[in-house]
């Protein structure tokens, strides 16, 4: 198998791609997808450290990854609902045009 560092490098690259997308895209849905990518990069770290750690039989890394996936799913549902509500209000998902907090 590859050494632990290759998985860590891959996950940091995925995190940076997600961060770049969240910072540069104009579509609010794609910004949310960038945040999901960052959460996925963290999950790869959980699983990699679990597999290469001293006590993989304790299953803590797997449990943490499963709970993290569940939280990310709930976050995606609420985030998309908020985007839909904002779209109904302003008729756009363009973040450069959503620059007013007043109704």
């Amino acid at each position: 198998m590859s050494p632990l560092g290759s998985y860590l490098l891959l996950s940091s690259l995925l995190f940076s791609i997600g961060l770049a997308g969240a910072l540069t895209r104009r579509n609010a849905i794609l910004v949310l997808i960038g945040i999901e990518l960052m959460l996925n990069a963290a999950n790869i770290n959980f699983i990699a450290f679990w597999r290469y750690g001293p006590a993989p039989a304790a299953l803590t890394g797997i449990m943490f990854a499963i709970f993290s996936i569940s939280v990310a799913a709930a976050e995606a549902a609420v985030g998309l609902a908020i985007i839909l509500a904002a779209y109904r209000h302003s008729q756009t998902t363009d973040l450069d045009q959503m620059n007013s907090l007043k109704g």
Partner: peptide
């Protein structure tokens, strides 16, 4: 990551 001692760590026996 490249400076860390974990970089070259090899996997233990398959759990």
């Amino acid at each position: 990551i490249s400076l860390s001692p974990a970089y070259t760590r090899q996997a233990p026996q398959e759990p």
